[in-house]
Amino acid sequence: MHPLRLTVNGTPHDLKIDPRVSLLDLLRENLAMTGSKKGCDHGQCGACTVIVNGRRINSCLSLAVAHEGDEVTTIEGMADGEALSPLQAAFVKHDAFQCGYCTPGQICSATALLDELKRGEPSVVTKEKVELIDEEIRERMSGNLCRCGAYNNIVDAIMEVAEART
């Protein structure tokens, strides 16, 4: 067993874990936080997306022991008690999900995306500078599959929150 100290949604954890455990399985199995979902376990679907030190990552592709001292934010850390975050509320309003399985990953991804936009980080579709257009959101959210096909509504939800921020 391997010692690991990290912070999840502001709560510090001091753990001893099997070094084979992925960050996703650490959350789901060791910490019983099942909001982050396992869709492929290969970094292909994005359902497990969490935010580590301010950046979104696929938690299934990362061994937990590689996160010594890291700050992890998951879907469980988005709401303030019963008060949903602006993105969470916008997802409900715009029907940006159907089955809901990819949703925790979509929302974690979108939350980090808003910060990427704020920092002006370009994507493959960026021309001169980052603009708040559909194409930017669609490109940046293409690592999060949604088989129910809520893509248009996901873009609407993110746009609404992004526009309110600018």
């Binding site: 936080m33 099942t34 909001g35 982050s36 979902k37 396992k38 998951t74 879907i75 469980e76 988005m78 709401a79 949903l84 969470q88 509320a89 997802f91 409900v92 309003k93 029907d95 999900f97 809901g100 399985y101 949703t103 925790p104 929302i107």
Partner: peptide, 17 residues
């Protein structure tokens, strides 16, 4: 709006696994 929406957007909807 979907009545179970708040559960789904906060990771509290419990799927089988």
């Amino acid at each position: 709006d979907r009545v179970e929406g708040p559960l789904k957007v906060s990771g509290r909807a419990t799927y089988a696994a």
